[in-house]
Design a protein around this nucleic acid. Structure first.
Lengths: 219, 219
DNA sequence: AATTATATTTAGGCATCCCTAAATAAATGT
DNA sequence: ACATTTATTTAGGGATGCCTAAATATAATT
């Protein structure tokens, strides 16, 4: 049996190595999980005994095949639940994380797959992050930062790179949602702010904001 | 903060005193939770310190106001999730219990209330048990055992009194569901089995079965 | 290459929640 | 009422998962 804590460690390792390299340090894990490095060392040993990670003292950790499989299942559940909360229960983006963090630990393959079906097999969660499939395949998206595209670009908002709720609330206010179609009408050279068309509105947003929005270019 | 274990104890105490009297013994709790009486004594003391139960050594336990409130919230969540699983995800009766047992511990008032709304404020769960309201009111149903009603009675199936999956599966096979309308066509004096009309079918069921089905008489 | 700084691990402890065995209180039978 | 049975509590211990402080390995600096 795998414990809740162990699941959180696997998830943390996966999420670190999705954004950076394959080998993860004790310190990074401690940072993500808000625990002490000492606790991490301890837990890593337990995970190694269960063959969920590969580990060499002082050299860092990587997920084993079965560890990665488990971690992807948790990530899948997390993102499916987030999708459920936003699409079905009308939660807003900024509220779903903590709840999904709890729901992701519910153990029932049947539940996960029925939920997937109920949601109509979504490929992306409300933050635009890909949802791993039943077999653990995570479709990579080629996304760019909104701040990096040229004038006249059309694209679909795919996600954000921060979870700060002030930021997310601001986006909600602007009506910027995952899947929203936007067009860059103008880029102000002086401060790199952008005039953006969304629906039939035009919004002016700063570089601080465009720097945190990912889009998929469609034209 | 209340722990998962504490929640399970509160829930156990509530469920025992819903079916029997108000004061619950250590042994009964141990029975429900599959733990040793010694562990129960220990935990009860912790719950008393948190003012969640009233307790006198050797005299048994009862829920305090705040303990009852918490227990009702957990029961509410359990029954809402069961309803969700059956009505939305197409689980069958007999499968939902273990999953709901996990989901009931997810902490988010907002989630519970949005789920309630999403399900259209159900009053009864798929087993026919009443769902406590937001303010902890649990609508009592005057139900009778199917085995106790006279011939020609019409009623609605409201629930069952056992969770054995063989029994539940048999009911599914007979197409006996919560809310199903039935009519007693005949009662065989010899073995008290009943001829029952359900939909446009007629089924013959034994006293062992009628003894475990609750109905609400409508005629 | 040696020293200093940083990262990681080990050691020793604490809280939670479980256990068995022994002690004690309450209930029951005669 | 007293002895016996049953219920409950106390005592002592184990696993998990966390902590701080100390020890040790690795990385960085000069």
């Amino acid at each position: 049996m795998i414990t809740l804590s162990e699941e959180n460690y696997l998830k943390a390792i996966l999420s670190i190595n999705l954004e950076t390299k394959n080998i993860v340090s004790t310190n990074e894990i401690a940072g993500v999980l808000n625990t002490s490095p000492a606790s991490v060392s301890e837990m890593i040993k337990k995970l190694e005994e269960k063959n969920l990670v590969n580990y060499e003292k002082y050299k860092g950790v990587s997920l084993s095949k079965s560890g990665e499989k488990l971690a992807l299942e948790i990530l899948r559940k997390h993102r499916l639940w987030e999708t459920f909360l936003v699409n079905k229960l009308e939660f807003s983006w900024s509220e779903v994380h903590d709840v999904a963090e709890q729901l992701e630990h519910v153990k029932s393959k049947k539940l996960t797959n029925k939920l997937d079906h109920f949601l109509n097999y979504p490929k992306f969660d409300p933050h635009g992050e890909p949802i791993p499939s039943k077999n653990g395949i995570i479709s990579p998206t080629k996304r760019v930062l909104l701040s990096e595209v040229p004038i006249k670009t059309k694209g679909i908002i795919m996600g954000v790179s921060t979870d700060e709720s002030e930021f997310l609330d601001y986006l909600t206010q602007l009506n910027f949602k995952i899947g929203s179609k936007i067009k860059i009408l103008d880029i102000i050279l002086f401060d790199k702010s952008m005039k953006i068309q969304i629906g039939d509105k035009i919004e002016q947003i700063s570089e601080e904001v465009t720097n945190n929005i990912h889009i998929k270019i469609i034209e």
